[in-house]
Amino acid sequence: MSVLVFIDHADGHIKKASLEALSYGAALAAKTDGTAEGIILGTVNEELAALGKYGVKKVYQVKNESLNHLDAQVFTKVIAEAVSSTGSKIIVFSNNLSGKAIAPRLSARLKAGLVAGAVALPDTSNGFVVKKNVFSGKAFANISVSTDIKIIAINPNSYPVSAGDGTAEIADLAINVDPFKVKTVSVSKSSGEVPLTEAEIVVSGGRGLKGPENWGMVEELAKLLHAATACSRPVADSHWRPHNEHVGQTGIAIAPNLYIAIGISGAIQHLAGVNRSKVIVVINKDPEAPFFKAADYGIVGDAFEVVPKMIEAVKKLKGVA
């Protein structure tokens, strides 16, 4: 089936989550004897033809600079028109923040079944069944989509980026862009740091660190590992750290390759936000901390003694003085 992948970008660069979506879309097309194409709204400072190495044959671009900001209503209309002109049958998004804004609207507009939070390629042996995360990472559901057009939003960090050779053909799509009803007035980004939801490694601190003045070692370890920093709910609620660092059931759910939890006991609500991490490391002085049951590696010990030694070891490994 013909697959169309939505390519998301910010600050002139294509997001890693979209490279995953492109790789997923290409594998899906290969599996269903179709071709994979991409669509990008707005403009970037990257060579779009190079996206061919992720397996897309063609990239459609709607070159309108107003589309460098997101208005889900306008984006949906543009993508819906592109779907009808390209005849695509499966639309793939990353289930990142933009995907969550656009994919549901597109689903309702096209009456196309949506699987949001997919974690694997569909099983096409009997219909079209896609596995997705449910119950905040505590289970999976297999969802059957029977509509003619199907939409899959793949969870970030669930499908590996696979790059080979190839060049994509670039085609300009002339689609009328409606005036925005949502106007962006300001954007603030924490500069120089790794965004939490995109980070491959996350270093996180809990109440065991006793106070905000002790976060220096968390930040230092994170910096050395090129990691993002996070925290547990009590830490955010006590205003030791900003609320946008709170991971857990009611905060942000993340799925990094490596999650290092320091002084976090691992309440079930916290686990719900991090249990999709590939490898979990727990540092806690309480051997009974429930987090050890969910961990891959652990140290039962005092964070104030263990973490500085970890920092030393990482510095040695990376050859940093």
Binding site: S107, K111, A112, G113, L114, V115, V129, K131, V134, G137, K138, A139, F140, A141, N142, I143, S144, V145, S146, T147, N275, V282, F292, K293, A294, A295, D296, Y297, G298, I299, V300
Partner: peptide, 19 residues
Amino acid sequence: LTTIVSFETPPAKAGVKLV
């Protein structure tokens, strides 16, 4: 537009390796 066919629970972790 969609139906749930079945649920699965993730495989249990192999256990923590303590250092």
